[in-house]
Each structure stands twice: as structure tokens, then as C-alpha cells.
């Protein structure tokens, strides 16, 4: 009896949390930034986007360099080091760009969003906004959500571009792959619609998932210091798992069947 009751209570809690999350997402989606409060969103693009630039550029550079180094040692055995360019470019554009950006974004910006909104809730700033007839969904949540949606695809594109340049640095400048074949085989292999646009679609989906989880976890956190720390951890864990799982599904849909 007790067991059945706990199963029921757990299910109800999960379903109602999913419902609250969906309601909050619709609230944020409905509050598209308008001209008069666009500054709130720009401010958040600065916080989640510009402040993540450094970590994105540095990791993009090093991941591109490592891939060129590893790829070169394998490809050179077959005399196919000319294929280094497409290998680096395709893996970055299709997979690593969107996925690693989303993981870094979850750790760098997602956790901060959760902690910020959670603390706003704990210090009753959200309730005060409601007291003043200001909708916290519009004023606090929506700008952060849209800033995440705008920033993440931009960060993923910068990540891929920097990674390809990093691969060029190691492959061409240090290991002596021919610069002409690095770029020209890359150009004939990479397709704008199939590779670049699909990568952008991927990072849009990841942006939706990561920002949604981050904001909901903050908005729905238990307003104590312990609750906020739990919510922050859950944001990073859940969004990383969701990104990796969704990436497989999206890859299967986009590139699975020729």
C-alpha cells in the first residue's frame, strides 16, 4: 500500500513538474522581445553569450588542434593526409561544434541562470515583482530564454570556425599538409545545406533544451540555499544528458539514412 502510494505521488509530482515547465516555456515563448524592452535581452546576450566567448574560443581552438594532430597520425599511414581538412571540418560542423558548445554553455551559462533565478526566488524578488504587477515571466525569464536561444547558435558557429582554423594551424603550419588540399577538398566535401545548416538546427534545439532546463530549474527551485545548490547541479547534469541523447536522435534523423 505504502509502495503504491509513493509510486503515485512520484508520478503526480513528475507530471505536474512537466506541466509547470511547459507552461513556463509557453510564457517565455509568448513574450518575444519587443522593441521597447529589447535592452533587457541584449543585456542577457551579454551575460550568457559574450561572457562565454573566451571559453568557447579557447576550447574550439584546442579541439580543432587535437583533431588535426590525431587525424594526421592516422591518415598519413594511408597517404591520405589531404583528407584532414574535411575530417576536421565535418566533425566540427556536424557534431563537436553544436554538442561541445551546448555542454560548455550548460556549465558556464546554464548553471549561472539557474542560480540567479533561484536566488531571486529565495530572496522573494520574484514575488515583489508580482506585487508591483510586473510579470516575472516577461521581465526576468523571457529575456534570459531568448538570449540563450540567440547566443548558442552564434557560439557554435564561432566554435566551428575557430576549430577549423586551429586544425589549419596544426595540420598545415606544423605538420606540413598542403594548404591547397586542406581547403579545396574541404570545400568539395562540405555542403552548406546538409552540414552547416543542419549544425545550426542542432544547436538551436540544444539551445532550447539547455536554456529551458536552466530557467525552469531556477524558477522551480526550493527557495533555500540547499535547494538552489541542488537545482544548479541538476541543471548541468540534466542538460548534459539531454544534449547527448538528443544529439544521437538528431544525427540519426539528419545523416542516418542516405
Amino acid at each position: 500500500m505504502k509502495f503504491l502510494q509513493s509510486v503515485g505521488a512520484n508520478t503526480l509530482a513528475k507530471v505536474s513538474a512537466a506541466g509547470r515547465a511547459a507552461l513556463m516555456l509557453f510564457g517565455a515563448l509568448a513574450a518575444v522581445p519587443k522593441a521597447k524592452n529589447i535592452r533587457l535581452t541584449i543585456r542577457q546576450v551579454y551575460v550568457v553569450g559574450v561572457q562565454s566567448l573566451l571559453i568557447i574560443i579557447v576550447s574550439g581552438l584546442f579541439i580543432g588542434m587535437v583533431m588535426a594532430l590525431q587525424g594526421y597520425t592516422i591518415l598519413v599511414d594511408y597517404g591520405a593526409e589531404g583528407s584532414l581538412g574535411p575530417m576536421v571540418a565535418l566533425s566540427l560542423l556536424r557534431e563537436l561544434g553544436p554538442v561541445v558548445t551546448a555542454l560548455l554553455f550548460a556549465g558556464r551559462a546554464g548553471s549561472a541562470l539557474t542560480a540567479e533565478i533561484g536566488l531571486m526566488k529565495a530572496t522573494e524578488q520574484l514575488s515583489s515583482l508580482e506585487m508591483m504587477a510586473v510579470d516575472p515571466l516577461r521581465r526576468v525569464v523571457a529575456p534570459r530564454f531568448w538570449a540563450g536561444m540567440i547566443s548558442m547558435p552564434m557560439l557554435a558557429l564561432i566554435f566551428s570556425a575557430v576549430g577549423i582554423l586551429g586544425g589549419h594551424l596544426v595540420g598545415v603550419d606544423w605538420l606540413g599538409v598542403d594548404a591547397g588540399s586542406y581547403w579545396s577538398i574541404m570545400q568539395s566535401t562540405v555542403d552548406w545545406d546538409k552540414d552547416v545548416v543542419n549544425g545550426i538546427i542542432k544547436s538551436l534545439v540544444f539551445a532550447l533544451v539547455v536554456t529551458w532546463i536552466a530557467i525552469f530549474k531556477g524558477y522551480d527551485s526550493i527557495p533555500t540555499s540547499e535547494g538552489i545548490s541542488k537545482a544548479t547541479t541538476e541543471t548541468v547534469v540534466f542538460s548534459s544528458l539531454a544534449v547527448l541523447g538528443l544529439d544521437f536522435v538528431l544525427t540519426a534523423l539528419m545523416f542516418g539514412i542516405e
Partner: peptide
Amino acid sequence: MTVGAVLLLALNVANK
């Protein structure tokens, strides 16, 4: 920077 990245990807990588 994003516009620069898109231009690099479009012109140099995908050869749009």
C-alpha cells in the same frame, strides 16, 4: 564575430 564565422564557413569551408 559570428558574421565573420559564418562568412568563413560559407566562403572558405562550404564554398557557397
